[in-house]
């Protein structure tokens, strides 16, 4: 038994596994590569049990922020009850949504309940490209309306651009559109295979050269519009010289550290992050501190590809996304698919 309340900067709570889109790049761990469900446990609790689960997570940690995601969180009929509960605990809340159900009424309900930020996808300035990647006709119109609704009622949103082979040349235009709609920031997330997305590896995974070009365009746009841009999915410095893009922030895996963002699924299973299929245990059965104890996180934290052994940046970069390596190649110690695909062009930093 571990005592004390671990400090966690953000808890990612997957309130539902249901979704009304079928994104080609979806990383949700409960989707199998072949379109069928994976063997990941599925389910959803009623409101009372959901709040009990959330309460236990918050009681057992010193948590300073909660992100509600899914699936599509707005499919939960009791989302307002969850938001009311979080507001009662004085916690800032972010919602990651595809925007389809974020009409004006829903936007106002969320904002009135203290949602501080929405993360909404903006995959292209072209309707057909956004809709194709979302696997849902009408997705582009819906998300633009969602952004307008949030903005109209003085809320804040960040536009999330998932860079794939199909849309990577649209980065600059997406930044422009996001700026015009009043985005607070843009997340430039290169496609990170997992869930359904791993079936589309060849179709979607961009080359390092494509990513470099897109980052250059995004960096110029970021400077031009004064719009903060962050790369939330790790981009290995051996593949892309990140120092060449001064307007863009680059992020690496925080799993196991003080800034980890553990993912809690709708039925209480805790994972190192939302990309990782590895279940640490169920929060109904064990304490949060026990679930994230160093011994249990060890295999995740210490894993890394042999290719990265001589690299001076390894402590930061960690080889990229271990979860993607595990999902695609079966081992946390394997190479992140983006690294594996582009390894021949890698220049290991000294």
């Amino acid at each position: 038994m571990t005592h004390g309340r671990p400090r966690i900067q953000s808890l990612i709570f997957e309130v539902t596994q249901r979704c009304n889109h079928a994104c080609l790049h979806c990383y949700n761990v409960w989707h199998g590569a072949d379109g069928a469900p994976s063997d990941y446990p599925r389910g959803e609790l009623d409101t009372e049990r959901t709040l009990a689960l959330l309460g236990k997570a918050l009681d057992e940690t010193a948590c300073s922020h909660v992100t509600l995601t899914g699936g599509e969180p707005l499919l939960r009929g009791d989302l307002n009850a969850i938001l009311d509960y979080l507001r009662g605990r004085n916690l800032p809340v972010t919602i990651i949504s595809n925007g389809r159900l974020l009409g004006e009424t829903a936007a106002v309900e969320c904002l009135d309940r203290g949602v501080g930020l929405f993360e909404l996808p903006l995959l292209s300035h072209q309707r057909e490209v956004h809709d194709r990647l979302s696997g849902a006709p009408g997705a582009w119109d819906s998300v633009l309306e969602a952004m307008a609704n949030v903005r109209l009622h003085h809320g804040r949103f960040a536009a999330a651009f998932v860079a794939t082979r199909l849309n990577i040349d649209h980065a600059a235009e997406v930044m422009k559109l996001a700026f015009a709609f009043g985005a607070q920031a843009v997340m430039f997330n290169r496609f990170n295979p997992g869930g359904r997305g791993r079936a589309n590896l060849d179709l979607l995974l961009p080359t390092a050269d494509q990513v470099r070009r897109a980052l250059a365009a995004a960096d110029t746009a970021a400077g031009e519009y004064g719009l903060p841009v962050s790369c939330s999915i790790p981009i290995q410095p051996c593949l892309v010289d990140t120092t060449a893009f001064p307007h863009i922030g680059f992020a690496y895996c925080a799993a196991g550290g003080a800034r980890a963002y553990y993912a809690l699924d709708p039925i209480g299973n805790l994972r190192p992050c939302n990309h990782a299929p590895q279940i640490l245990g169920n929060l109904f059965e064990e304490s949060f501190a026990d679930l994230i104890a160093p011994a249990r996180m060890k295999s995740f934290v210490e894993a890394g590809p042999a290719f990265c052994a001589p690299c001076a940046r390894r402590p930061d970069c960690q080889g990229g996304c271990k979860a993607a390596a595990q999902v695609c190649f079966g081992s946390l110690g394997d190479e992140d698919p983006f690294l594996k695909m582009n390894r021949e062009f890698a220049k290991i930093p000294e």
Partner: peptide, 13 residues
């Protein structure tokens, strides 16, 4: 004064 991490909430000005 610390860098962002994967999927961390955005730094808001």
């Amino acid at each position: 004064n610390v860098p962002m991490t994967c999927y961390e909430p955005m730094m808001i000005d």
